Computed example of a mutant assay.
Amino acid sequence: MAGPDTDPARPEAGSPAAHLEHLRVERRLAPASLRAYTAALQRLADCAAAEGLALPEVQTSALRRWAARLHGEGLAPRSLAQMLSAWRGYYRWLGQRHGLRANPADGLRAPKAPRLLPKALSVEEAVALAEHRVAEPADPRLEARDRCIVELLYGCGLRVAELCSLDVHAGPQAQGWIDRSAAEAHVLGKGRKRRSLPVGRAALDALVDWLAQRPALASPDQPALLLNRSGRRLSPSQVRSRLRERAARAGLPQPVHPHMLRHSYASHLLQSSGELRGVQELLGHASIATTQVYTRLDWQHLAKAYDAAHPRARRKPDDPA
């Protein structure tokens, strides 16, 4: 968004680039959130430039027209809602920092999107994946690491970014680590909020096995817990790739991604405990409404059990009386 003559180290006051710097430095948004804001503000800047408008001069009618056009071009309701939220945030910031009198994005709402249930594995599928073993692995080090990945994702409900940011030891620079003696994981989640959560026996056992293999890949000054074959910190994309491959080898009928194991963790905890507030704390959700979606998964599970087992559920609507 900066012009060719703009110093990238000092964005122009009131510009989208200055707002993004505010979000990065003062709000400390995560890289993925910053990328989403950047894309949304780039769209705003492009629309304004196409009509020869300076961003502070844009009116609500123009924003509504641009949003409608983008929706007509295929932008999904959920993506449109995120974009409008970014626009509102930008104009709110202009009002706070640069005296803009009214926020033209106030009151603009995206079409309501259907609420999709998160995809979760059944208990049997999750256990099959966790208990899968490669009889003669080509590289026992990577086999131990991949088992550890599955156990930590499903056993602790970690986000993939939280998993990849784990270090071997606690320290001033560590974003997360596992205290084996206390059987606790300490992670830095969304909004840079720290939380602690229990680590089960199966995950601890897999961790011990991996730590026995890790020195063969790690340099002495490498803090990361999970490493790739080159000895560098494992990336989220590498975790996704390894998990898809492992799920296929375990015979699961659908591709598995890291967040699916987090969903499975939450759903299975609710099925067995019913402790909605406790699951909210373990997942690190700011709002319990985010956690409540897993109660719908639990209801689906109960409904299927009813359909399969209850004698009054077996009769089809068109069966003769």
Rank of each mutant, 00 (worst) to 15 (best):
Q213R: 14
P215Y: 11
A218S: 13
P220E: 10
P220R: 03
P223A: 14
P223C: 13
A224D: 06
A224V: 09
L226N: 10
L226Y: 09
L226D: 13
R229A: 15
R229Y: 09
R229N: 09
R229G: 01
G231H: 08
G231V: 10
G231M: 05
R232P: 00
R233T: 07
S235K: 04
P236S: 07
S237D: 13
Q238P: 00
Q238M: 15
Q238V: 02
V239T: 13
R240F: 04
R240L: 08
R240K: 07
S241Q: 14
R244S: 02
R244W: 01
E245H: 11
A247Y: 08
A247T: 07
A248E: 15
R249C: 10
R249W: 10
R249G: 05
G251M: 09
L252Y: 08
Q254S: 06
V256P: 00
H257T: 13
H259I: 09
L261V: 07
R262H: 03
Y265L: 12
A266L: 08
S267E: 04
H268R: 03
L270D: 02
L270Q: 06
S272W: 00
S272N: 04
S273P: 00
E275V: 01
L276C: 12
L276E: 12
L276R: 08
R277P: 00
R277F: 08
G278A: 13
V279A: 06
Q280E: 12
E281W: 04
L282K: 07
L283D: 04
G284L: 06
G284M: 08
A286F: 00
S287N: 14
T290D: 07
T291H: 06
T291L: 09
Q292N: 01
V293H: 02
V293N: 03
T295G: 07
D298C: 12
W299F: 15
Q300F: 00
Q300V: 06
H301R: 08
A303G: 03
A305T: 14
Y306E: 00
